[in-house]
């Protein structure tokens, strides 16, 4: 239930517990979605993910850095209609480098140690999404918005 102020805590818990998110980009107005392994800070922003530079999503992001990311805890059972929470993060993505932002690399690799080889490869880029706001859906239809203070 999102009543008093559990929205923030609920979001933190969701972002900590989930490993994958659906990233939404576009190319000349054509929407495009990709599944990405992500990590988030306790402040709810930024969210980081890694992608090869050759991918469509990376290409799309170079043209337009606006993104939406969907994180949810569905279990693919009928309980989801009542119990699942889905959060859409709205923001902008930008590339980061280990030299300037070692803490983001650490954050990411702590959550996904198996991706170390992937992240350190030359063709892989690390991106951070600076989140402006979240839209959180629970109980099937209840939707609340949380603005993220930069």
């Amino acid at each position: 239930m999102i009543h008093k102020n559990p929205l923030r805590e609920q979001l933190q818990e969701l972002l900590m517990s989930q490993r994958l998110a659906v990233l939404s980009t576009h190319h000349e107005g054509q929407p495009y979605t990709s599944l990405v392994a992500f990590a988030a800070t306790a402040n709810l922003s930024p969210i980081v993910f890694a992608t090869p530079r050759t991918t469509r999503k990376f290409h799309n992001l170079k043209k337009d850095h606006r993104v939406a990311l969907l994180v949810d805890n569905r279990s693919n059972t009928e309980k989801d209609f009542n119990e699942a929470i889905a959060a859409t993060a709205i923001g902008v993505a930008q590339e980061v480098h280990e030299k300037e932002s070692p803490e983001l690399y650490e954050l990411y690799l702590t959550k996904h140690p198996c991706l170390e080889g992937f992240v350190r490869s030359q063709s892989c880029a690390m991106l951070q999404v600076l989140v402006h706001k979240y839209l959180v859906v629970n109980h099937f239809q209840n939707v609340f918005q949380l603005k993220v203070v930069p």
Binding site: N5, L7, Q141, N142, L146, K147
Partner: peptide, 14 residues
Amino acid sequence: SPQTPPGVKPRQLV
């Protein structure tokens, strides 16, 4: 009715 938490706005209520 506690105060609305800062930064939180409803988008859709059921």
